[in-house]
């Protein structure tokens, strides 16, 4: 390569204006070679599909006949004429609002407990993390359905009957499966907690601050970027849960549409009923809602997330 021979000469210049270095174009070419699979994927499997699904959302399309332009009809039908759509929105929002705070709250409490534990921390960390790997599987979803069914363990223990057969309760069974997987955010919390300098706590206890005071004034602000990260990640994931709702409700979203999650209804409209246009419209509404929720989380984060190292960046 020619670049190597003149590197010593051009090195100082290269530091300030790298693009102008002889052979810079060649290196830029190399960068695009490395990027090519990603560029292809982003173009053909992300951007193009997004554009196509936006177009399809204004059409009537069943995969076999060419799409027929219907304007905003899918959207008006969705918002004004389809009670199942609103039930799916309700089920999804209820689930997100219950499952995410509960999961993150438990994750934080367990992480705080493990942080002050000296022996066995590694063991418990791994053991609590394991359900996060198993929980997304069909196997565990089937276990959940059996545990929360009539005559299942929960029914026998609490005498509530099978949760999965009661409209008001089935959602909680799915939410508890999410809570069961608190290990992933917990591991992230624990790593965040371990990065808080111990001097802060030492100084605070010298000043006579109680443990609760220390938690509120040191732990929460120092951990707020990690709390924020977990909140965004888990919220986005919760909006897209599919397998457990599918398994718990036998693929139908029942009883009485109480576990008809947005993704389940989207699958039903698109792939069972072959209303691809309608399903595309649903997908775009989901995309906009997730984008809006993320934007709101980011916007509000300015008031409560504290970045200690902002100055060094």
């Amino acid at each position: 390569m020619t670049t190597t021979t003149d590197t010593p000469v051009t090195a100082p210049a290269a530091r300030t204006t790298p693009a102008k270095r002889p052979g810079g174009r060649q290196r830029e070419g190399a960068a695009w070679v490395f990027l090519s699979p990603w560029v292809l994927g982003a173009a053909v499997l992300t951007l193009l599909p997004m554009a196509v699904s936006l177009y399809l959302s204004f059409t009537d399309y069943d995969l076999f006949n060419p799409p027929r332009w219907v304007g905003l009809r899918n959207y008006t039908q969705m918002f004004t004429e389809d009670p199942r759509y609103w039930r799916s929105v309700g089920a999804t929002l209820t689930y997100v609002v219950i499952a995410v705070p509960l999961q993150l709250g438990i994750a934080l409490v367990v992480a705080l407990g493990l942080k002050s534990m000296r022996r066995g921390r590694g063991f418990y960390r791994s053991a609590f993390y394991a359900p996060s790997l198993l929980g997304a599987s069909m196997s565990i979803a089937l276990v959940w359905r059996a545990l929360f069914n009539d005559g299942g363990t929960v029914d026998n223990l609490l005498g509530t009957g099978g949760w999965v057969n009661r409209p008001g309760w089935a959602l909680f069974a799915v939410a508890l499966l999410t809570v069961w997987q608190f290990g992933a955010p917990m591991v992230i919390f624990l790593a965040g907690l371990q990065q808080i300098p111990t001097e802060l706590y030492e100084a605070a206890s010298v000043d006579g601050a109680s443990r609760w005071r220390q938690f509120l004034s040191i732990t929460v602000p120092m951990l707020s970027p990690v709390i924020f990260f977990n909140l965004v990640l888990q919220t986005i994931q919760a909006f897209q849960v599919f397998t457990p709702a599918f398994a718990v409700s036998g693929g139908k979203g029942g009883p009485a549409d109480s576990t008809l999650f947005y993704t389940l209804y989207l699958y039903d409209r698109g792939f069972v009923a072959s209303h691809m246009g309608y399903a595309s419209a649903m997908a775009w509404v989901l995309l906009i809602v997730i984008g809006a929720v993320t934007a709101v989380l980011f916007r509000t984060s300015r008031t409560w997330v504290f970045y200690a190292s902002e100055g060094d960046r």
Binding site: L45, P49, S53, L56, F239, S280, A283, I290
Partner: peptide, 18 residues
Amino acid sequence: TIMLPHHAVLIPQYIIFN
């Protein structure tokens, strides 16, 4: 794209692969 819901691209991807 990490935050992009899979469902937003699902149907056109299906059409492409189809």
